[in-house]
Design a protein around this nucleic acid. Structure first.
Lengths: 337, 337
DNA sequence: GTGAAAGCGCTAACAT
DNA sequence: ATGTTAGCGCTTTCAC
C-alpha cells in the first residue's frame, strides 16, 4: 500500500494548536500543569486531526512496550485456547497487548522465538504449554533473569520461574474416587509416559491407596491425548482380558475414544463400566452418554498467570518464583453418576 | 522487576569493536560495503555480548512494525482457532508477529480496539470473525484507506476490504445433496436469522430446487450455533409433528444436539433420519454415530488471508478489494452414508 | 570501506 | 503554566 498522506505527529498538533510539543505531550498523558483552556484547545486539535500518538515512539523513550509475549504449543487444544482467552482479557485490562507465538515444541525453534520476542522488547513472557512440554532448561535459564516469565506448566522448583497451574494430583484423585464408589477395579488410560511426576496419574494412585486397592499395572494403558489413542488404549485393555468396572482417562478426548471401543465391545456405560474423563471439553455434556469429568479452571489460569506476570513487571520488588495452584472440580454426569 | 543491568545498545557494540555504529548497523542488516574482517569482528562482539537490536527503535525509523493486528470474536470456537493457527504460521514465515485482540462483538469496544492497534502502528489488520458479525460499517470505512485490512467474513462488496472466505453456499448445497440421495423431506436447523444472505441456508434451498423439492418452512428451525440450541431446535421440529428423513444442521454442534433429541425420541440414525453437520470439528469423527459433515479449510483461510494482507502491505500497488473463495469438502460418515 | 550528522516521534529534566 | 534541550536506539543520507 503506497504511503500517500503526510505523517501526523505531535509537532504537527503542537503547531496547529500554537503550543510546544511538550504541552501536547502533557495533555496526552493527562498531566497537571496545563491551563484548562490550553488543554481544551489541544484536545480539539487532536480530535479534528484524528491524531494518534505513536506507541512505538513512546515505547522507545519509556523503555517499555506494554506487550507480553505468549508462547503456546497448540491452538487446536481447547485447553490452551481457554488459557489464551483468559490471558488476553487480563492483559487488556492492564493495558497490555499479547504477541502470539505458537511453536511446534522444537527446542531450537523455541529459542529462536524467544530471541525474536526479546528483540521486540516484550515486557514479559507467558509460557502456556502442557506440563510435559516445558521447553529446554537451557532456554528457561536464559530467559530467567533477563525478562519476567510466568509459565502454566509444572516445572521443577528451584531454577524455575513463577508458575500457575492446576492441581492435577487432586483432580486425578477426585476422578478416581468417583469411580471407586461401588467399584474396585479401575482401569487407567494415561498420557505418554514421558511426562513428569505430579499429575493425574499420581492422583489415581493416591485414590487407590486411600481405598485400600492395590495398583495393578495390567489395568493401565497409554495414549497420546487423541481420540484415536483412547480408542486404541481401550482395545488394548480389552484385548488383554483385563477385568474392570471403571476407567479413568486422563483427558476427555481419550475418554470418548474409550467409550467408543467399549460400545463396540458391547459394554454398557455406566452399568458395565463407568467412565470419567478430564478437561470438560464442550462436547462432554452432549456426548452420549454424557461424560463425567474434571473441570479445570483454564480461563482462570490464564487470568492469574497474566496478573502475576504484570505484577512482576511493574512491582519494584521481584516477587518471582511463586507457585499458584488452582483447584479442579468434579462434574458428575451419566458416565459415572 | 528492577532494572539492574546497563542497556546493551548498538553504540556499546560499536565501541567494543572499535567501529562506528553505522558499521555495526551495516553488519546487522547484511549490507555489503563492510570489509570481511571488520564484519567478523563485529559479529564476534555481538555474539560475545549477546546483543539484540531493538525492534522498537528499528520500527520507529523504518516506519513499519512488522506486526499484524488480529481481531477475533471468540477463542472457544474451533473454527477461529484454526484460522488463527494458520495466520500465525504464515505471518511468522514472512517475519511478522500477530497482536491478539478478542472482542465481545460490541461495536464500541471494537472501535476502541482498532484505535489501540492503530496507535501501535500495526502494518495491517486481520478481522477473523463469523460472517454474521462483521462489525459496524462505520468502523470499516474508518479503517479502510488508513491501514490495509483483510477480513475472513463475508461483507457486502463495494465498501469492503479484501476478504477471504469459504464457499458456504456450495457447502450447504453439498450437505443437502447428500441428504437428498434417497430422501425427499429434509429439515434444516439454521443459524440465527439475523445473518446475511449467501450462506449455508442458501445452499440448502438451491439443492432442494435442483432436486425439484419444494421448500417447506415448517421443516426449518433456528438455533444459535450451540449444542443446546440444536437440541431444542430438533425438539421444536418433532413437536410440530414435522415429517422428515434427513436434517441438515448448519454446524456440527447443533447437529450433535439434534442427534441427541432424535435419540430421545427413539429415531435411529441414519435409518430413520440422516444427519449432516458443518465444520468437521474434532469430535465429529468420534461421535456415535460418526457425523457426516462439511469440512471447511479454516487453517488455509488463515494462511491465505494473511498472505494477502502482507502482499497488500508490501506491494507498491494496492491489490485491495480482492475476494478469495475457498472450497469445502463433504466428509461422509455414518450419519449420512 | 567507513564515519559524522541528522532525524524517526516522543518524553524527562530543566529552564523560564 | 509553558518552552527548550537532550536523548531513547536505530538507520539514512552524505561525506571522506
Amino acid at each position: 500500500m503506497p504511503e500517500t498522506t503526510e505523517r501526523l505527529t505531535i509537532s504537527r498538533v503542537a503547531e496547529e494548536a500554537g503550543v510546544s510539543t511538550q504541552t501536547v505531550s502533557r495533555v496526552l498523558n493527562d498531566r497537571p500543569d496545563v491551563a484548562p483552556e490550553t488543554r481544551q484547545r489541544v484536545k480539539d486539535v487532536i480530535a479534528r486531526l484524528g491524531y494518534q500518538p505513536s506507541a512505538i515512539a513512546r515505547s522507545l523513550v519509556n523503555r517499555q512496550s506494554h506487550t507480553l509475549g505468549l508462547i503456546t504449543a497448540d491452538f487446536s487444544d481447547y485447553f490452551f485456547t481457554q488459557v489464551i482467552a483468559g490471558a488476553e482479557i487480563e492483559a487488556r485490562k492492564h493495558g497490555y497487548y499479547l504477541m502470539l507465538s505458537s511453536t511446534e515444541r522444537n527446542p531450537e525453534e523455541e529459542r529462536e522465538y524467544f530471541r525474536l520476542l526479546s528483540e521486540r522488547r516484550v515486557d514479559g513472557i507467558l509460557f502456556a504449554r502442557p506440563s510435559a512440554q516445558l521447553g529446554d532448561p537451557q532456554l528457561l535459564s536464559l530467559i530467567n533473569g533477563t525478562i519476567p516469565v510466568v509459565t502454566t506448566s509444572y516445572l521443577t522448583p528451584g531454577t524455575a520461574p513463577s508458575m500457575v497451574h492446576v492441581d492435577n494430583i487432586d483432580g486425578g484423585r477426585q476422578a478416581t474416587r468417583c469411580l471407586l464408589s461401588g467399584r474396585r477395579h479401575i482401569a487407567l488410560i494415561a498420557g505418554p509416559s514421558s511426562k513428569p511426576v505430579g499429575d493425574r496419574t499420581t492422583g489415581y494412585r493416591l485414590a487407590l491407596e486411600e481405598a485400600g486397592v492395590a495398583y495393578d499395572p495390567s489395568l493401565v494403558a497409554e495414549g497420546d491425548w487423541s481420540y484415536e489413542s483412547g480408542y486404541h488404549a481401550m482395545r488394548t485393555l480389552l484385548g488383554r482380558g483385563a477385568r474392570f468396572s471403571g476407567v479413568f482417562a486422563v483427558n476427555d478426548q481419550m475418554a470418548i475414544g474409550a467409550i467408543r471401543a467399549l460400545h463396540e465391545a458391547g459394554r454398557m456405560i455406566p452399568d458395565d463400566v463407568a467412565v470419567v474423563g478430564y478437561d470438560d471439553i464442550p462436547v462432554a455434556a452432549y456426548y452420549e452418554p454424557s461424560l463425567t469429568t474434571i473441570r479445570q479452571p483454564m480461563r482462570e489460569v490464564g487470568v492469574v498467570a497474566t496478573r502475576l506476570l504484570i505484577q512482576t513487571i511493574e512491582e519494584e520488588e521481584a516477587i518471582s518464583n511463586q507457585e499458584i495452584l488452582l483447584k479442579t472440580e468434579l462434574v458428575r454426569r451419566v458416565s459415572c453418576p
